[in-house]
């Protein structure tokens, strides 16, 4: 089992390298189509044409594009993604500071989404067994029509304005200083024993995570429900029933184990959705994550930063897909055959 996981990881890694290079190239070329000069912001108003040329040469912008890409790639391999034009800081340190917040947000959102969708999917399935068109199905369709950033606005209206019980700005309260051990606020504050600050961090995380989870769970519910419907038509379910197993046992022990497989695949494919949502949700909640950083970079035409964050998102997506592959193989014995 361990060997299998290792084999998948190795295969994934081997495939990831050309993927990352190709994707970086796509981003690089697209960004070079830029109609405005991103360097204008870096120069003082009094700069001469000579100064501009010197700056271009310094940043490597006077080279042909393929050469520029190779330089960027070489630097990237050495762990240097260049300097942000607007923040005047290395891209790696900007990303390094923001990444844990986004990962934390995505994982908490995923946990909430699963907590909603597993019972939700089972309920939708049970209701479906009784009637074809159910209120649960219509609810799912309605929920699916609300993107995460609208959830963010709606949740702020409800829990921030009309019934102000939860904070909706920042990652922790202003008075709290994060210890910065792992970068994950919930973990750091817990291991340093600052429970009051920990609950502040949690309450700040709740609304953004809920926004993401609410837009993600209808998709999971649908896949789970249709996985369960497929499983219900399989002979092994009827045979289990004829063996005298209870309906509850059949649903949770037999059908769910099978229905979970397409669900895992779908979560891997749609994780990009979660990250896409995080972009706006982080911006709306002033959450200092990668998504927020990306929006600022895009608004400021900060090419090195955009390029760096794009690379990070690809790495994250590839990592998630690797995890999903391993999970799928561990849960699906049919893939384990030699």
């Amino acid at each position: 089992m361990f060997q299998l996981s290792l084999a998948i990881i190795v295969r994934r890694l081997a495939a990831a390298i050309p993927t990352l290079v190709l994707l970086s190239l796509v981003v690089f070329v697209v960004l070079r189509l830029l109609p405005v000069d991103p360097l204008a912001a870096l120069l003082p108003p009094s700069a001469t044409a000579e100064d501009a040329r010197a700056l271009r040469a310094q940043l490597g912008f006077d080279q042909p594009i393929p050469m520029q890409f190779l330089i960027w790639l070489w630097e990237a391999v050495r762990g240097n993604l260049g300097n942000s034009i607007n923040f005047h800081q290395p891209v790696t340190s900007l990303i390094g500071a923001a990444m844990p917040a986004t990962i934390e947000l995505a994982l908490v959102a995923l946990a909430i989404a699963l907590a909603i969708s597993v019972p939700g999917g089972a309920l939708a399935f049970v209701l479906h067994q009784r009637a074809r068109e159910t209120a649960a199905d219509l609810t799912v369709t309605l929920l699916q029509s609300i993107p995460s950033f609208l959830w963010a606005l709606l949740l702020i209206i409800v829990f921030g304005v009309l019934w102000p019980v939860l904070p909706f700005s920042g990652r922790v309260g202003q008075e709290v200083v994060l210890p910065g051990i792992t970068g994950f606020a919930l973990i750091d504050l817990l291991i340093t024993g600052r429970l009051r600050d920990w609950s502040s961090a949690l309450s700040h995380l709740l609304l953004p995570a809920l926004s993401l989870a609410l837009s993600f769970s209808p998709m999971v519910i649908r896949v789970l429900r249709s996985g369960l419907i497929d499983a219900a038509g399989e002979p092994y379910v009827e045979v289990a029933r004829l063996r005298g197993l209870s309906e509850t046992r059949i649903l949770w022990r037999h059908m769910l184990k099978n229905a979970v497989l397409p669900t895992i695949t779908m979560i891997g494919v749609q994780f990009g959705f979660l990250f896409s949502g995080a972009l706006l949700v982080e911006m709306i909640f002033g959450f200092p994550g990668v998504g927020n950083l990306m929006v600022q970079a895009v608004k400021g035409n900060d090419m090195p930063l955009i390029q760096g964050i794009a690379l990070l998102f690809c790495v994250l997506m590839l990592a998630i897909n690797t995890v999903v592959d391993v999970l799928y193989a561990l849960l699906n014995p049919r893939l384990r055959a030699p």
Binding site: E234, P235, Y236, K257, N258, L261, P333, R334
Partner: peptide
């Protein structure tokens, strides 16, 4: 073949 749960030994 399909009367035994595929994910259980």
């Amino acid at each position: 073949l399909s009367s035994l749960n595929p994910v259980m030994t």
